[in-house]
Structures are given as C-alpha cells and as structure tokens.
Design a protein around this nucleic acid. Structure first.
Lengths: 348, 348
DNA sequence: TTGTATGCGTTATCAC
DNA sequence: GTGATAACGCATACAA
C-alpha cells in the first residue's frame, strides 16, 4: 500500500553480489552472460518486484519505443479502425501509441507535430488535415531519421512512406459500376484541395470512366463540398435534384455524404436506385444500415493501420534507408448493394 | 539534413556564460531568476533550436505527463468519441495520451494494465472489458498513487474515481418512454455479468418501470446477449418475434442491437413503431440513419472523456487525496425518434 | 563471463 | 539572483 521505492538493477545486483551491468545484460538475455546467471537474475528480479524504468532506458538509448499518431479526428469509423490496427501491431512489438488530433486544421496539425517531435516518438503515422497545403512541418522528423508514414490522406510531394489505396482506380471502378448499372448522367461529390490528392484522384477516376464510356462530362454535376459532413452532403444533393436535368447516379466521395444523398432523395420522392443510383466510399457501418443499403468502396482501415505500423517497425530493423519513399497500395473492392441495384445491363 | 546532436541546456549555458541550473530555471520562469536573464535565455534557446528532453525531465522528476487509456475497442463510436474527449483535454494541459485496447478480454486487460504501469503513466482512464470479473490488476496504480478513472463500464467494488451516467435511471426512463407510448409488453436485451453493473443497472431500471406502471414482468421477454453485436441483436430479435405472444416494445441495451431489431422486424413484415416500438442506447450515428430512425438514450461520450481527463489533472493539483472515490454522474436524455412514435397517450 | 566507469539531459539541494 | 554538484536508472565501451 505504501509509496514504495522502485526496485532498480542496483538492488538486484546487491542482493546477488553481482554488478549492475551484469544484471542489465542478464535481463536482456545478453549472449555473454551464462545461462545460470540469467535465470538467477530473472528469478530474483521477479521476486523483488522489479520493473524496468523505460524512461531511464529511453534516455540512455535514445529510443522511446513509441509511435505517434496524428489524425484529423479520432471519432470517425475509418480513422478509429485505422488507429486500432496501429495499436494492435505496435503493442505486439512492445511499442506504445500516442494519439493526437488535428481536427482538420492546418495550424493544429503543425502544433501536434511539434508535440510528437518533442515527445521524441520513434516513428509517426499521419493522415493529413483537410486544410494542409504544405508539409514542411514534417521535415523535422526526417532530419532526425524518424520514419513517417502517411496513410490515406497523403501529401503529393513528400518523399517518405505512404500507405494508401489507389484512389484513382477506386474512383474509376465506382463510376464504372454505376455505368454498368445503366446510369447515363452521373454526378460526383468531391472536396479538398489539389494538394491532398485523395479526393481529386477519385474525381480523376470518375472523369476517366465517363470518358471511356463516352458519357458527356457535365460540370454542374460535379459538386464541391466545403466539408465532408452530412450537412454538406444534403446541401449538395439538393443542388443536384434541383437541376432541370438531374442526375440518375451519384458517386459520392464518402459514405456519410452518400447516405445524405439517399435520405434527401427519399424525402423528395425520388426512388433509389430506380431513379437515382448512389455509391459511396469507405464501407462505414451506416452504409449497410441505411435503407436502401448503400453500395460503396471498401477501404481497409485496420489493415492500413497494421501495415503502417509494420513499415515503421521494419524501418528500425533495416540499416539501409534507401527505400524510404516506398508506397504501399492496398486493395479496394466495389461492394454492390441496394442503392445501385438497377437493371444490370453490362456494356462490354 | 544531418543527424545533429540535440541542443541541451549546457549548450545554452556555455553560450551565455551562465550555469546550466540558471538555464533550467529560466526556461521554467522560476521566480528567483531576473526578468532580463529569462528573456535572454529563452531567446537564445529559440535561436539554437533547443527542445527540452522530456525523457530526462521525466526521469528526474518522476512524472511522465502521460495519461494511459484502456478501452475494449477503439473502433466504436462511443469509445472513439470518449478518447477524442480525453485527448482534447489532456493535450491542452500538456499531457500525452497512450491508448491500449483489451478487445473485451480479461487477460488482455490485465496485460495492458501492466503495459501502462511499466510505461509509468501519470494517470489512467479505463472502461472495463466485458469479461472482467475482478479488478485486482488495477490495484498497482493505487499503490503508487496513480489516479485511475473508470468510465462508462465501471467496476462495482473498487474505490476510485468514476465517471458514468446513471444507468438505472436511464433504463427506467427508456422503458417508461415506451410505456407512455402505449406499449404493454416490453422486451429487453441485456448482457454482461453482474460485476460490470452497467447493463444490469439498465435492466434494473427497466424492471422498476414495469413495476411502477403495473405491467407484468415476463421472463421470456428478457433476452441475454452473449456479445453486444449486431448478429446477437438479430438472434435475440428473432427469438422475441417467434414467441406466441410477442412484445409490442423493445428496450435494447445499445443502438447496434436496437438497429438489428428494427431490421429483423421490417424483414418479417412487422411495423415499427405501430406493432413494435423500439428504443436503443448511446445515440450512435446509425441510430438516426436507420429507417425508421431509432429512439435512443443519449450517452455523452466526449464529455465523459473530457471529464475523466479533468479529474486526473485535478488530482495532480490537489494534495489531499481523500475524495478519491468520487463518482461523477453525467446527464442523459431520451431522444424520441420514429421507432417509438406510436400514439402518444400519457399515463399520469 | 563479469566488473568498472561514464554519460544520457534534466531537476533539486545546497551553497554563495 | 546565480552556481556547483549530485542524483534519476539504465546501457555500453572498455577492462579484467
């Protein structure tokens, strides 16, 4: 019950008539220590209730065994799954995970990088804030050879590890899916700057699919969202449905806004998918709860997290730091559900 | 670009012809240092690119300024919002947040407490695993005077800080809401052990509401879920609707299973809320996406997180550690939506 | 195989 | 108002 002093390697050393360095080595299964000593040391360490002081170890070895995570907001299905994946892999390897949020603000992102930097994290996993236009605030990590993995929302011009899906291909597949279902006038929600290339890549895929299938590109069908929120999704949907010539399909940049589109359509008496087919992105829980269920593109959040953590761990093991610009692409799939289930006539 | 050595207070001291202790004090606005020196020191610290080594500081002062978080799973709306709240408050006070998950396993929870303990966190925020039956693994924190705040899923017999809602009252209110809407046979989903009193408290409120309004308690309407998952919610719903005398209302322990109930009912051609009124718990995003929208009980996740962090911070400031068993109750409200919107005849 | 000595960068306790 | 010095607990280069 008392605020006992911690047992140190010196205490163990004294008890066993050994030196502190022998204890230190024995506890780490150092080669040069005899089996017998090792087991003796470990046993008494156990008995004395020794716990290593990782602070001292970190100070000495200049390695905190901590991965810093910087994301827009924790409380989004995709992000929280991502973090979950990071945590699982990191813990297995004996690494702790520190989390910080930028709340999609550039300034907060800059501040939080400083926090992580000062916390001397061993590595960083980051998904950029929507506002972020340049990434000079991440340079400090590279200067110290601290690996940084960008995930999902990755910067365009910054040579480092990246884990992502091919948003261009995904956007293409999503749009083509609607085309295969018979849509002729497909609208699109996008957002963000050209810098964070995620949404603009999806848009590029969208445009290419239209072109490939000889469908006209109508600028009034391409709506820019100021934020990727439910409210903005509703606003955009109303704009589309107010058009003289409304769309018969929507490829939305995510599920939240896709769901908003379904609800607006339903409220206005427009049938989904018969009059309006919709496909979202991410496979959030809401996408299969909404009625009709929302077709979507899978986005492997947990796997992204695990992969990001693994890359960081691998970086520590390898001595050659050449492949630091490695980009890992994970697979996505079209998840066809009710919201796009029109007559299926495939153009081939 | 180089792996430069970090600037230390010694470097600043040398440059200014001062002692390292003066630098240390100046950087912390120590009273006994002159204004002039303080500003001189801070300026050159800035210029030299000094960053404090919090590892060394932590080692010396035995304070990591870190809050450890231990939750079942990060990727649940309620939990991720909770963490978000913790992070916001902690960061403002200069504290970092380490996250760990128990995945609702008792053994993992024990392991993760050890991880946090060895990481020498300054305080702990924890929501218990479903399986957890005893809390002796948390005793180590109290022994070291490390404050621990249990939140949402709190233990029954463990004297420490707790932040929660009054689940009994909430369960009562939810049930009474259905009664006011005209339900006569109200079913209930519950789960967990008696130890984690959260669900059993809700059940207690449910039972009391029935009693108060002279409705019979029918055991076949009270279904135990092995897990609080969508699948279990579906299984339970089918059991209920297979009954000779099925219920006309369900109070579900959370929104996920409440949504499952709505979907099962719809699939079986049972009208919600006319034939079956349903109320959930938590106000998860899915609850207002489902059609008909799910009435629910609000559960202030972000506020719980912020409150938990504040309690820990307050604990550090206060010298008297008497009120360590303080329990904070946050408010909940009935959110009446479509799934319970039957004819409204109030019994008073 | 084990021991000795030193430093990691702070903070705190004296002393002046 | 400032300085010298000793911890904090561990890891490692160098000796033995």
């Amino acid at each position: 019950m008392k605020d006992n002093k911690d047992v140190t390697i010196y205490d163990i050393a004294k008890k066993l008539n050994l030196s502190s360095s022998t204890i230190s080595r024995a506890l780490k299964d150092h080669k040069s220590i005899s089996e017998k000593t090792i087991s003796r040391v470990k046993k008494t360490a156990q008995e004395m209730g020794y716990r290593p002081n990782i602070l001292a170890a970190s100070l000495r070895s200049k390695n905190t065994k901590t991965i810093g995570v910087l994301v827009p907001t924790i409380s989004q299905p995709f992000i929280s799954s991502l973090i979950s994946g990071i945590e699982i892999t990191a813990q297995k390897a004996g690494y702790n995970v520190i989390i910080t949020q930028s709340h999609d603000s550039y300034q907060e992102e800059v501040n939080k990088t400083k926090t992580l930097y000062n916390s001397r994290v061993s590595g960083v996993v980051c998904s950029l804030a929507m506002q972020t236009q340049n990434t000079s605030h991440f340079q400090q990590f590279l200067n110290k050879n601290i690996p940084i993995v960008f995930v999902d929302r990755v910067p365009k011009n910054f040579n480092t590890y990246k884990v992502m899906i091919n948003n261009y291909t995904a956007g293409f597949k999503a749009t083509e899916h609607l085309i295969f279902k018979g849509c002729k006038r497909i609208a699109h929600f996008y957002a963000g700057s050209e810098f964070g290339n995620l949404y603009s890549e999806r848009k590029r895929g969208y445009l290419h699919a239209l072109k490939k299938h000889h469908l006209p590109i109508d600028k009034e069908l391409i709506i820019y969202l100021n934020e990727v929120t439910y409210e903005e999704g509703k606003r955009a949907s109303h704009i589309l449905l107010d058009l003289k010539n409304p769309p018969d399909g929507i490829f939305s940049l995510n599920d939240t806004t896709g769901v908003a589109a379904i609800q607006v359509a339903k409220k206005r008496g427009i049938k989904v998918p018969q009059d309006l087919a919709i496909i979202g992105f991410n496979n959030d829980p809401i996408s299969h709860i909404i009625d009709p269920s929302l077709s979507t593109i899978t986005n492997p959040a947990i796997k992204m997290g695990k992969t990001s953590a693994k890359i960081i761990l691998k970086h520590f093991d390898s001595t050659e730091k050449n492949d630091i610009a490695e980009i890992t692409f994970l697979n996505t799939e079209v998840l066809a559900r009710e919201s796009s289930n029109k007559i299926n006539f495939k153009i081939s």
